[in-house]
Structures are given as C-alpha cells and as structure tokens.
Design a protein around this nucleic acid. Structure first.
Lengths: 234, 234
DNA sequence: CGGGATCCGTTACGATACTG
DNA sequence: CAGTATCGTAACGGATCCCG
C-alpha cells in the first residue's frame, strides 16, 4: 500500500498497520506466539499469499518477528515485538468501539462460552485500573467453569473453578456480550438473578470493565498459549 | 470493502472504519465540521471519487453526518455523529503509537509551529486526566505565540498570548515533537533552559501529555525522566 | 468556485492449485 | 507445515468534465 505521505502520527501509524488484515493478524499474535497455519485458521478469507506479504511487511517494520530455523520452513513462529505489544491500546479502543456494531449474540449460532469471553473481555479491559496484584475471577458461563486472571492487558484464561477467587461471575454467554454492549442493565440483571456476581473485588472488576477505553499507561506483554486454552475447552 | 465476517469487536470496528482513508477523514472531522473541499485539501492523494464513496459509507453507518440543504450541492457540511466522536480514543492511541514512527522533525522542511502543535498535541491528549475546569496554556514556539485551551478531546487553539494562563511553555517546534517522541529528556531540557515550563498547573499538564507512550527502544529511559522531572518541579 | 460524477489505467486483493 | 504461483476481480489513483 502506498504511504499517505503526511507528517502526522496517525497517518504514520496507518502506514504501518492500516492495511487490510494487519490488525487482525496482530490481534492473533496478542494471544501469544502463533504459527503461519494458526493465523490462517483464525482468519478465514485471508489467502496464504497475502498473509506472507503482511507478515514480511510487519517484520520489516519491527512490529512482529519471525522466529525459527533461519532457512528451513518448518517450525517458524511469529511473535509481537516490543513495538507490536504497544499496539494493544489500539486494539482495545477498537474493540470497545466495535462491540456496539456487533449484532445481538442471540442471533449467532454455535456461540460458545470461550467465544463470548474473547468477544466481551479480552480486549475491553481497562487494565490501568487494575489493582497491582490483579484480580482472580471465577466464571460460570452456560454451565462451564473458567478461571480468569486479570493482571495485564490480555486476560489469562483456563478451564476449571477457583473457590478462592476475588470475584465470582455466573452469566450466560449471550448476556456476557450483551452486558458489554450496553444491551442489558447490570443492576436489573443482578436483582433478578439473571447475573450472579459476588466476591471481595466486585467494585474493581466493574471499574475495569466499566470505563471507556483509552490508551494505557504502561502496556505489558502477557505471553500465554491460546493452544492450551483451546485444548482444554474442547 | 468486504466484511471480515467475524463475530469479533475488532473486526466489526475495522469493517466500519478500516478502509483506506476513512480514519484520516475522521481525523479531519475531529477538528470540527468540514466541507468536501476542506477534506480534499487536507488529504492530497485522495481522489474526489473515493472521498464521496467514503463519506456516503460513513454516513450510512452512522459515523458521520451530511448537513446542508438536502438537494442543493453548495453548502454541504460533514460532521461527526455521537458514534463518530467516540472514535477519538482510537485516533489518540494511533497517534501515540505512530509518533514514534515519524522521522525527526529536523528533517522536515517548512515545519511550522502550528504543524508541530497538531502533530504533538492534538491527538495525544489523555483528556480523562484533565481537571474539570480545563487547562489554559500559553505557548511560545519559535517566537510565535498561541493560546491553547485544553478542556476536551481536541484542544482549542488560537494565536495571541495569555498572561493569566495556567501553564506557560516555551519550546521550539522541532523540540515539541521530539519531546512527544521521547527523543529528548524533559528534565535535562528544562535544566538547560532549552524548554521553559512554568505555571500553576504544570503537573496536570504533564500528566495529560504524560509519557505513557514510551519509545519502544528504551521505555525505562522516558519513565525515569518523567520521575526526575516531577521531583524537580516540586 | 464548491461539490461532485465519469472514465480508465494500475494496483491490491481473493480463490484455488500446487510444491519443498 | 509453510509457503509459491497463477489469475480473475474489485478497489484505488489520477485526470477530466459537469452543474448549480
């Protein structure tokens, strides 16, 4: 893509990550190092041709890095650089705005708890409001249980329960998204028992997920493996 | 542009504002209502054909609005809707990241004080840290004087001086940008007199324009410099 | 002169097939 | 698994023209 050719920080950013698919590739890498095929699976419609173009361009510009045996094809892994990690505030503000443009999750088929968590919680965290020690959350969504640790820009998620969590939340997958979309009133839903929320850090939890997205003070990288999560949730 | 077709808030946002030029058009409208020709002048390389396409698309999606005599061609004005105004955090996080990808302003010809202000200050405001009454700033840049009022997402700017300003800043146009790029250490520059900063709300000013977007290369450097600066200013 | 519309060459993208 | 090669289509960029 041609450069905008303006001495403007927004244009400069778009020159680097403004092309089609680039930010979605970066979204995938924000979940941890990914291989070529992982990204392809996550982004149907993106041709291998174009993917390798984007990967090479982002690599040249220092946003991502290709790791693995130099010449050989197998075992190549792509990961965010420090500069790429600083893109997380952009992903967050985009997610915060974009969730209102998503349809009601009730219309989505095969809407799994994990999909709901990623949609509603993974990029909407105002993590600058997190207490230094983080928040341990125990989730029950459509009967499935998860442990979530909020201590950085991207939550850490695993299956299983946590009796000592700081916050316990029981909610349906669809309502979790509706809540972030502003489609349901939290106070009402709590009173009617449609949502169950308790624990010692409920206030902090609501603050973290309640404020408008804005650039964060200090982006930090939380490297985790989404593969482990996928394996467990299946 | 084809939709990404994912039930993901980031993809949904990019479906609306991810096309080429869209965010730069929105950047222009963030400075206030603009006419067709204003936008064309601000964005060389954008053909009228494509501009009207984008304007209509953004209008359909509720991000901007066309105001003016319904049928008549003259006097058409484009403006951000409420939804479009909520895109400002995205512009800000983009600007904070992108400024580090701009070259040193010393290499730019015809780099005016106004250009420096727009580059360095117009999209980097962490306005959630603003005191409710705002901050009145008096700027002297390369000998030219400006009054700037920070009381919302986009600063209000005029020529002239203000003896009763809350903050007074004297700096060169190039250094203003370098400061936001993390290329100069503020504490040093203040001590040497290269930058002059005074007034009753210096702390708030520095917080609003704080160093959250540290350069990717040496984040600790910028963090230390702001700490030293705060220590000095007390 | 402001606010577009039309036309057209070039580039970027999307889908499929193929390979080390 | 990690790409490469090919090719039809859609999007973009530039120029020109039109209309109030």
């Amino acid at each position: 893509m041609k450069s905008y050719g303006q001495y403007c920080p927004i244009a400069a950013a778009l020159d680097v990550i403004g092309e089609r698919w680039s930010l979605l590739i970066i979204r995938e890498l924000s979940f941890g190092p990914q291989r070529f095929t992982d990204i392809r699976r996550a982004l149907p419609g993106l041709s291998p041709n174009l993917l390798i173009d984007r990967l090479r361009l982002l690599d040249e510009q220092g946003v991502i890095e290709r790791r693995g045996d130099a010449g050989m094809s197998s075992r190549a892994v792509y990961t965010l650089t420090a500069s790429g990690t600083e893109l997380l505030p952009i992903l967050q503000s985009l997610a915060q705005w974009g969730i209102h443009h998503l349809p009601d999750p009730g219309e989505i088929l095969n809407f799994s708890p994990v999909a709901a968590i990623r949609t509603a919680l993974f990029n909407g965290v105002a993590y600058r409001f997190l207490p230094p020690e983080g928040i341990r959350v125990s989730l029950e969504i459509d009967g499935m249980r998860f442990r979530m640790l909020l201590n950085g820009p991207v939550p850490w998620l695993r299956g299983g329960s946590d009796e000592n969590a700081d916050v316990k939340l029981k909610i349906s997958a669809a309502d979790l998204v509706r809540w972030r979309q502003g489609r349901i009133l939290v106070g009402e839903a709590l009173q009617s028992g449609r949502i169950e929320l308790s624990g010692s850090k409920v206030e902090a939890f609501l603050e973290v997920f309640g404020f408008q997205a804005a650039p964060a003070k200090r982006p930090e990288l939380a490297i985790r493996s989404i593969a482990a999560l996928k394996a467990e949730s299946n």
